[in-house]
Amino acid sequence: MQIPRSSADAAHPLDGLRAAGPIAEARAQALVMEHYGLSAAIRRLDSERDQNFRLRAPNGCEYVLKIANPDEDRAVTNLQTEALRHVAVRDPLLPIPRIIPTRDGAAELEIGFDDGSMRVVRLLTFLAGTPMHQAPPSAALRGDVGRCAARLAVALRDFVHPGANHKLLWDIQHAAELRPLLDAVPPAQRVLVERVLDHFVADAVPVLVQLPKQPLHNDLNPHNIVVDADSQTRVCGIIDFGDMTATARINDLAIAAAYQATDSDEPLAPALDLIAAYHAVSPLEPRERAILFDLIATRMVMTIVISNIRAARYPENSGYILRNNKQASARLAWIATLTRTQATQQIERACQGE
């Protein structure tokens, strides 16, 4: 389906940032030398919005150079930077990237490029390991993801920043605003997608607006979780804070759990390992548990709808944009075989350690 950019933008102004013009590797390499005093081999990383590069210094240390999309609000970029700095103080053992200061001690730079754009530049430590989507699945690994997700939410609980309340389409609390865009969904899926959104509006939204709210990572999918290559059961990195926003606390868990559901006759079972581990670190309120299943299903719907829209607009980057779409569709079909009562009972039992 081809969606004209102008009409789609008018239909929903909250769509993500357009891909920015590429920055040459040689330019990025020179920038790192000039401002960080770092001589390093460099290669480009995949990204939907920003320009990211992986660096390797002669001593073996590795870094990620992040050059923000020029259209991104400076307060939003700084939100991510300051969140990383805040978490590093609140929970020093949590495996997140660390901000590397410039020679002058700055956490961020604003640099002009040849295309006339001004872009925020940051250098972070690179967290080596196996991306979770490539690691063998296990209850032990899912449990560690749950614990790390809870620790991250706890560490961010007292974080305050003026950019935290920006509106983001990927925020579950705005899922109902996807309705005008459902033409992007293949017809075979549309009935189920609409049904999930109906339940979200009727059952989740009235509760969601009353729940504790705070800044959150907001994208704990397996591409943003790095696993220890030796044990294969321990999280050694939580990366990409680019979708960070302030939203209901339960949404972070719903997102992480949505990617652990499976296309089997027990579709929620793997996600329960993660949910139980999260609850053990940061106990969920009864009303949070009551709508968690709705939020998990809603996240799957969001992945399907938004990725289809963006892939149609930016076909040159469709492989990256659609990387989670096929699995989300399969998992949504399977969890739709559960009633809300069945799913909520399973979640309650998991939180009680049964």
Rank of each mutant, 00 (worst) to 15 (best):
A256T: 05
L124V: 04
A246R: 00
I238M: 13
K66P: 04
N224P: 06
Y36I: 02
I3W: 10
L31T: 05
P186A: 07
A328T: 10
D9G: 15
D73Q: 11
N324Y: 09
A246L: 04
G129A: 08
L124M: 05
F53I: 02
D230F: 07
Q260N: 11
P131N: 09
R74T: 12
V121A: 01
V145L: 15
G60F: 13
V120M: 07
P136V: 03
I99Y: 10
R310S: 09
I42G: 06
A153M: 10
A261M: 13
L182A: 14
L322W: 00
A8Y: 12
E108Y: 00
N325L: 10
L292R: 11
D294W: 05
P95C: 03
T77W: 05
R234G: 10
H174F: 08
C236Y: 06
T245I: 14
S117G: 05
P270I: 03
D15G: 10
H161L: 03
R179C: 07
V235M: 10
M1G: 13
A8M: 09
M302H: 06
V205L: 14
M132E: 03
K167A: 12
I3C: 08
I3K: 06
Q189A: 01
D9N: 15
E72A: 01
L31Y: 03
T341S: 15
P131T: 08
A140C: 02
V301N: 03
E48A: 12
L178H: 12
G37T: 08
T245A: 06
P92V: 03
A336D: 06
D144M: 13
D50P: 04
I96E: 10
E62R: 09
G112C: 07
E354Y: 12
I42M: 15
K326I: 01
C61F: 07
A290Y: 09
D114C: 09
R85Q: 15
R142A: 11
A297M: 05
V196M: 12
Y63V: 01
H166W: 13
V160W: 07
A248S: 14
I304G: 00
G105C: 13
E82K: 11
L253M: 07
P215Q: 04
W334A: 15
D115M: 11
S117F: 04
D104I: 08
A140Y: 04
L197A: 05
T262R: 15
H279W: 05
A330Y: 09
L156W: 04
D219H: 00
A107L: 04
S307W: 06
P95R: 00
L93H: 12
H174Y: 02
E266P: 00
A280E: 06
E72K: 08
Y320L: 04
R147Q: 14
V305C: 06
A106F: 02
T339L: 11
L94M: 12
N317H: 03
D273G: 03
L211C: 01
E110R: 13
L152I: 03
H279I: 11
A269F: 02
W170Q: 01
E177C: 05
L65P: 04
H86N: 09
D46P: 00
I239E: 09
D219M: 01
K213N: 12
F159I: 12
I250N: 06
L292I: 08
I347R: 10
V281M: 13
L17C: 08
S264K: 03
Q80P: 01
R179V: 11
C61I: 09
V281K: 13
R44A: 14
L124A: 05
S329Q: 13
